[in-house]
């Protein structure tokens, strides 16, 4: 297999006496969708924060294309090609939809110490942004204030922003949360189409989506990866059954019928 694009080794982050992530190893290869699942509070978001630089691990390293980026500031990592979305919708609500996305295009088109031309008239910002909006199905909404969009569409704006950064690695923190079934299906299709040019790390509670999209699944429980492998293997892994879903037989049923949210158990 090719070298990992993104490689986390031994990432440990302490919150007081609690290890939110405890020696997590995780690799992400080009062209793969790697799903990270686990009960709430398992440390999934904390891990993403360490990958993007919003938190610095107390121990361990993060490498991107072989380069150690453990201590690199957030914006530098973003420029290297790491983009993320957030668990809670995190867009610029005071801006229009197109402005949100062009802001991300602008970030990767050189410095912004440009004071004269009106940003709204710059074709090189507008066109790529429109292209991404078309991809997520929001082209007709481009002039609307972002705050006026439905919750599901706001999440799509957030994903469009991440895509507009032209990243190699996309870290998606529960992209489907709070979306209606229709929007969710559309988005799953979009994500599916991304694997050609991107590596995706997908944190998601919707097991349907996880098992249909993921090439590989890692299970994080109490800050530790307890299993990692192909979806079929994870489905049959007894440790996962026990730790993640509680009791044995019930759990098998649960994984097969696929709960909408894997938040039911608190081991």
């Amino acid at each position: 297999m090719a070298d990992a694009l993104l490689s986390v080794k031994g990432a440990t982050k302490w919150f007081g006496a609690l290890a939110a992530t405890d020696g997590v190893d995780l690799d992400l290869y080009p062209g793969e969708i790697h799903a990270l699942i686990g009960p709430n509070g398992a440390g999934k978001t904390t891990l993403i924060h360490q990958i993007t630089g919003e938190l610095t691990p107390d121990e361990g390293t993060v490498r991107f294309r072989g380069r150690d980026i453990t201590r690199l500031p957030v914006h530098r990592r973003a420029m290297l090609g790491l983009a993320r979305t957030y668990q809670v919708t995190n867009i610029f609500e005071g801006f229009s939809v197109i402005e949100n996305v062009s802001l991300a295009v602008q970030a990767r088109s050189g410095h912004s110490f440009r004071f004269w031309r009106r940003a709204a008239t710059i074709r090189e910002l507008y066109e790529p942004a429109m292209a991404v909006l078309a991809l997520v199905g929001l082209a007709d909404w481009s002039d609307r204030p972002a705050a006026s969009l439905s919750h599901g569409d706001q999440r799509k704006v957030a994903i469009a922003m991440a895509l507009a950064m032209n990243p190699e690695v996309l870290l998606l923190d529960e992209p489907l949360a709070g979306m209606g079934p229709r929007s969710a299906r559309d988005l799953i299709d979009v994500l599916n189409g991304l694997r050609e040019n991107h590596a995706l790390l997908l944190v998601e509670h919707d097991m349907d989506a996880v098992f249909s999209l993921a090439d590989r699944i890692s299970v994080l429980v109490y800050g530790r990866i307890i299993a990692s492998g192909r979806p079929e293997a994870i489905r049959e892994d007894s440790a996962v059954m026990e730790a993640y879903l509680g009791e044995g037989e019930e759990a098998v049923g649960a994984l097969e019928t696929v709960p909408a949210k894997g938040t039911t158990c608190s081991v």
Binding site: A78, L103, S112
Partner: peptide
């Protein structure tokens, strides 16, 4: 209205997000 101004307004709205898209 310039690119700089847009960045500045973005920072007012959500500085953390601006960093995470690379500013």
């Amino acid at each position: 209205d310039s690119r700089f101004g847009r960045v500045i307004r973005g920072i007012r709205e959500n500085e953390g997000r601006m960093r995470s898209i690379g500013y």
